[in-house]
Amino acid sequence: MASTARPPLVPPADLESFQKHLNSSKRIVALVGAGLSASSGLPTFRGAGGLWRTHEATELATPGAFQRDPALVWQFYSYRRHMSLKAHPNRAHYALAELARRKDFMTVSQNVDGLSQRASHPPSSLKLVHGSLFDVKCNEFFCEYAESNNFTDPIVPALALPTDESDPTTTEALRARELDISDERVTLPELNIRDLPRCPKCKKGLLRPGVVWFGEMLPKDTLKDIETWMDDPRQIDLIIVIGTSARVYPAASYVDDARMRGAKVAVVNMDPADVPAGGLYAGDWFFQGDASEIVPEILKSVIGEVELPERS
């Protein structure tokens, strides 16, 4: 009778050599992107078939768009917040959170979905270079109000989604509501600006999502924290690149910087072509597959088995 045993997730020789290095590593950094959250069911808002298909993300995720039409921008981000909250952290999120409790370890995340935070990743070792959907801040120039991890859904009643929780801007949704779809950028039902999230501190400004919009600088405090950790005179032993090609700034620079400080590189990705711009060296690792399966497996020798919490 033919064997039905499942083939190993990772070639045994690669797993053995990686775990030997992992076990002896003192300082480790992970660079993560959208592939970390893919198996949690989150679609990308920039790709084909992504969120808000009838609105270009580059037209909505800008300071200018918020100035012109804050209601439309908040509808977009309220939908993204809702979809992220419907998703759940996967085993890779929990594995990285556990590694942070056991090693001198930092996760540099390009994701804004809040899943690492909800997996209880220690905040001090989680650096969000693109901000978070669940952070908000005042849009008034002289007001410094900011709030982290606001998971209220909807953030204000006026931004509640339709009961079917579907994307309200798809062609099908527009047809169902008998709106004119000759122009795909048809205006959504108007919201009164007074019903949008308001700053509780200055009482004048609107709150805006705490993400980095196109044309904005990355958060300097976060970049400084990463730089300080990377510049520590102690060697970096390992950088794990998960679900990102790491070919754009600042991601590419972190891989190069870690390597210059002694790190070996391990990549976890679905596409074998998605490796850092500098490529892989002899002694590095490439693990092909779903991050939610691969990451807990390769980290098991340090963190043990990863169990998902029961959902209420």
Rank of each mutant, 00 (worst) to 15 (best):
G41Q: 02
H55L: 15
S39M: 06
G64K: 12
G49V: 05
A38T: 14
P63D: 07
A38M: 05
L42S: 01
R81V: 05
L42H: 06
L51M: 14
E59H: 13
Q67H: 13
F45P: 02
P63Q: 04
T44K: 00
P70H: 08
H55Q: 12
A61Y: 06
A48K: 12
P43W: 03
G47A: 14
S40G: 00
Y77C: 12
Y79G: 03
T44H: 03
A48G: 11
Q67P: 00
T58A: 11
A38H: 04
S40N: 01
G41M: 01
L42Q: 02
S78Y: 06
A71W: 00
F76A: 12
P70S: 09
Q67A: 15
G41T: 00
A61H: 08
A48S: 10
A61K: 03
R46A: 08
G41Y: 02
A71I: 05
R68K: 15
S40W: 01
R81M: 06
R80Q: 04
L42E: 00
G41A: 01
R53D: 14
T62F: 11
G64S: 11
E59G: 15
D69N: 15
T58L: 12
T62W: 05
R80K: 09
A71E: 07
D69W: 00
Y77T: 04
P63V: 02
E56S: 15
L42N: 00
D69E: 12
T54C: 14
P70R: 00
A57Q: 08
G49T: 02
T62G: 08
P43L: 07
E56K: 14
R81C: 07
Q75V: 01
Q67T: 13
P63L: 06
V73K: 09
T54N: 15
S78G: 12
Q75K: 15
A57L: 13
F66S: 04
Q67F: 13
P43M: 01
E56Y: 14
L72A: 08
A61S: 12
S39I: 01
P43I: 01
R80P: 06
L51T: 09
F45L: 00
Y79T: 04
Y77K: 08
F45E: 01
F66H: 10
A65E: 03
T58K: 12
A57Y: 08
S39A: 13
S78E: 07
L60R: 04
D69C: 04
R68Y: 10
T44E: 05
S78R: 04
W52R: 07
R53F: 10
Y77V: 04
F66Q: 07
Y77F: 15
A38Y: 05
Q75L: 12
G41L: 00
G41C: 02
G47L: 06
F45H: 02
R46G: 10
F45S: 02
S40R: 00
Q75C: 09
E56H: 13
R68Q: 13
Y79H: 15
T62Y: 07
G64M: 08
R68W: 10
L60C: 07
Q67D: 12
T58I: 13
L72K: 11
P43Q: 00
L42V: 04
F66P: 03
F66E: 02
Q67N: 11
W52D: 10
L51G: 12
A38F: 05
Y79M: 11
F76I: 03
D69S: 09
A65K: 04
W52Y: 13
G49I: 05
R81G: 05
R80N: 09
W52V: 04
Y79V: 04
Q67K: 14
